[in-house]
Nucleic acid binder design. Structure first.
Length: 316
DNA sequence: AAATTCCACAACCGCTTTTCT
DNA sequence: GAGAAAAGCGGTTGTGGAATT
């Protein structure tokens, strides 16, 4: 693969940009638009490499960039998305209009990360800092040792481990009890013992995915449309941590903190929905989780809904 | 007042991914 | 389809101002 060498010509200027350089770059981009950054320095009269010009434009000069202090809402969004996605700054930035990934990354490294550490939380996993944390996951291997060994379970488990390692209940600032929280750590992990292997596998995969979506659906800053999940109803008011339960015949999620009457109902995942899922449907969704390339859970389910071969009749 | 440390943020670097030819 | 160029991404470093000693 070819690579764009940075500043391949010698003698190019580095370091902070001067107002004059900014003027030149802005004038050039306003006149010619951006793209083909390699040729920009020559055409704009700048002694910088194209890459440097591009970064300066994207991170600083672009007119719609929002600069300055992060609001509480933005702060919460960053923490929640980071708990779910890790250092996927560009994806996180996509959820914060007019903020750049670089700015969010800097904000994280200089502000949020330290705050989490002060709170006794691991900034990577968002869990309380303690030794041998990984051991509770069986070192990443043993959990399904004696259970079904199908590809999608393995893939899901890999994804779940990654997500679970990052997910936890977050409490931020003085308003923590009123803020949305992630509940990934509460996603059950054990296969359903009462079912046959194949059904159990499928159920647990979907179970976990539903749990993940439910968790994000309780976040007002992450407005996943209920319509993106067939047959699913989401409470109108945001809540906090809930409990997932498996009654044997259905999977449920119940919120119990700061919940109003209208949204305290137990939500049922339709049993026929689970049993009609095709393996390949699950595989595609699980792969999306595994790679964490989907822009958000919403994107994942959009793709899921669009897939051919999914028996959508069973949703209703 | 000078020196040192801390902090925030801009920018760079190296790598991967995507697009173009 | 292959290779090159461009764009994108995330980790890291450099810089300058503020705070502290």
């Amino acid at each position: 693969m070819g690579r764009m060498p940075c500043c391949e010509k010698g003698g190019l200027k580095k370091g902070l940009w001067t107002p004059e350089e900014d003027k030149k770059l802005v004038a050039y981009v306003e006149k010619h638009g951006h793209g083909n950054w390699r040729s920009v320095p020559d055409k704009a009269g700048l002694e910088r490499c194209g890459k440097s010009c591009r970064l300066r434009w994207i991170n600083y000069l672009k007119p719609d960039i929002k600069r300055g202090n992060f609001s509480m809402e933005e702060d919460h969004t960053i923490i929640q998305l980071h708990a779910l996605l890790g250092n996927k700054w560009s994806i996180i930035a996509a959820h914060l209009p007019r903020r750049t990934d670089n700015e969010i990354k800097n904000y994280w490294n200089t502000n949020v990360k330290k705050r989490l550490i002060r709170m006794g939380l691991d900034p990577v996993t968002h869990k309380p800092i303690k030794p041998n944390t990984f051991e509770r996951y069986g070192g990443g291997h043993g959990q399904f040792k004696n259970t079904i060994n199908t590809n999608h379970v393995a893939q899901w488990e890999s994804a779940r481990m990654e997500a679970e390692a990052r997910g936890s209940v977050l409490q931020v600032g003085s308003h923590s009890s009123h803020q949305p929280q992630l509940v990934l750590s509460k996603i059950p992990t054990q296969p359903c013992p009462s079912s046959s292997d194949s059904v159990s596998t499928k159920h647990n995969t979907v179970y976990n995915m539903y749990a993940l979506v439910l968790a994000t659906n309780h976040d007002p800053l992450w407005p996943v449309s209920p319509l993106s999940i067939p047959g699913w109803k989401v409470p109108a008011v945001s809540t906090n941590v809930g409990q997932f339960t498996n009654t044997g015949s259905s999977l449920s999620y119940e919120s119990d903190v700061n919940v109003t009457e209208t949204n305290s109902q137990i939500q049922k995942i339709p049993e026929n929905y689970l049993s009609n899922l095709q393996d390949e449907d699950i595989m595609v969704a699980v792969e999306a989780f595994r790679t964490i390339r989907c822009e958000s859970i919403l994107e994942l389910f959009r793709g899921w809904n669009d897939m051919e071969g999914l028996n959508k009749q069973s949703f209703f």
